[in-house]
Amino acid sequence: MTATSKRVPPTRQGGRIVCAGLAHDFVNARTGESVPALGTVDLVIESGEFVTVCGPSGCGKTTLLRAIAGLITPTQGQVSCDGTVVRGPGKDRGVVFQELAILPWRTVRRNIAHGLEIQRVPRQEREKRVAYFVGLMGLSGFEDKYPHELSGGMKQRVAVARTWATNPSVILMDEPFAAVDAQTRLTLQEELLRISLLSSNSIMFITHNVDEAVFLGDRVVVMTKRPGRIKTVVPVPVPRPERTVEAMADAQFVSLTDQVLHLVREEVQ
């Protein structure tokens, strides 16, 4: 927070997530039947890492994220964050949801400040951080608008800013750009990469879009179809600062994307 004002204040080390033998079944309320949603998953997200999770629809990606967030209690196994077992939602693990997450009755400014309010950050500090993220996410001039006055892309910018503002050590993103048009999506991806480089939070990003997974992730976790297990983990050897939408056309990226696409398609058949 001193001279390094380029970094998201206050900086701290990203959290380390360990999923050990994680599995989850959903119980059908009507039949009482138990439906496996997530197979057995062992996954480590290292401190400061950007991991994308990619797999066919319904493979349990979201279930995995919700288990790490503490929004569901897994049927088997456990999640720990920096050595502490996860027993419920906590402010160390922020979540950016797909949609319907920023509150319609709060303005952009108050939505971004929401986590800070909950965590009792003093007003002055709160305003400073909100101003920082409004600038960073290109929301200037929209501070006093309500969500229904914003485009889908703008809403997701607010959601991203709200989560980053509280600076959780781990950020979990559940297909945050899935409902946004393709052009805006590319812009949002680039912005996300940029923010991820300003901070040291560990990030897990769920998507069913292969291009997105390869473009953003340090590693791409490919999942099998339901009940989802980890099929393969594909490292992306290009450092994050060197990635641009243009660079995605390079042979190395193209072959990686093809590889992941092939892996996912095997599961869709």
Binding site: R93, A101, G115
Partner: peptide, 17 residues
Amino acid sequence: PRGYADAIETMGGGRAR
């Protein structure tokens, strides 16, 4: 929508919030 409550909980909010 359930998502609003999820969001509050993941930011550390309790029942009063």
